[in-house]
Design a protein around this nucleic acid. Structure first.
Lengths: 108, 108
DNA sequence: ACCATATATCATAATGTCAGGATATGTCAA
DNA sequence: TTGACATATCCTGACATTATGATATATGGT
């Protein structure tokens, strides 16, 4: 299976996702959801710190980019990872963090 | 093997990489290098279009983030992907382009 | 030296992003 | 209704990013 250029429209879409995940705080939000599963916002706030308004805005950006999903349950809004791509990215990072991160690459 | 939170400093580092790749044009630069291997800038310019100065600046940002590497050979400067993480990201995207990949949905 | 090619840098203006604090909305219960 | 809690939105100033066009630097050939 030969590698082929991805469609430009898809690349732009993915660029938007990467851009949104390209922020330390948002990345930690996604990681938390990946580690703990669906979580209400106030738990995220307690776990990650920061101002409530800021958290809400970051969650909003992640949601608009399709990275996470929101669902209201009573007073709370529960957030979940909405795209496997996000979890995949985190797993890539975990591989790069492992002590033997020396990976033989089949390039080209 | 239990998943554990990644160090915050590492997360911030990765966020910087994601942020730099989170741009359609830069993403296409990296993809081209992944598909074709080391390439001089003027070939990238011919292949991707745009203004020369803009390309140079994007290459500079990618280089400063450690995503690509530059090497002068005579008049030309050849660029190469410098971190396997970049190629890994592209492979994630290719997987998501397969026909049965779930489409991220936006609510509201 | 000059010239052409290849690449980098500068300057500017428009736009986007960020953190912070204040305020608004929604939901439930008493 | 009121109050308490959970979340969203608004505002503002500081800062970053972007595209564009112009100019500068580097290299090799004549």
């Amino acid at each position: 299976m030969q590698k082929q250029p991805l469609p430009v429209s898809f690349m732009n879409q993915m660029a938007d996702v990467l851009k949104v995940m390209g922020h330390g705080f948002r990345l930690r939000i996604v990681e938390f959801l990946d580690l703990h599963g669906p979580t209400p916002a106030h738990v995220l706030l307690a776990a990650l710190g920061g101002a409530q308004g800021a958290l809400s805005q970051h969650l909003s950006r992640l949601r608009l980019a399709g990275v996470i999903q929101a669902e209201r349950r009573g007073k709370e809004v529960w957030f979940t990872i909405a795209t496997p791509a996000a979890a995949t990215l985190l797993n890539c990072m975990r591989q790069r963090m492992s002590p033997d991160a020396k990976t033989p690459r089949k390039s080209r």
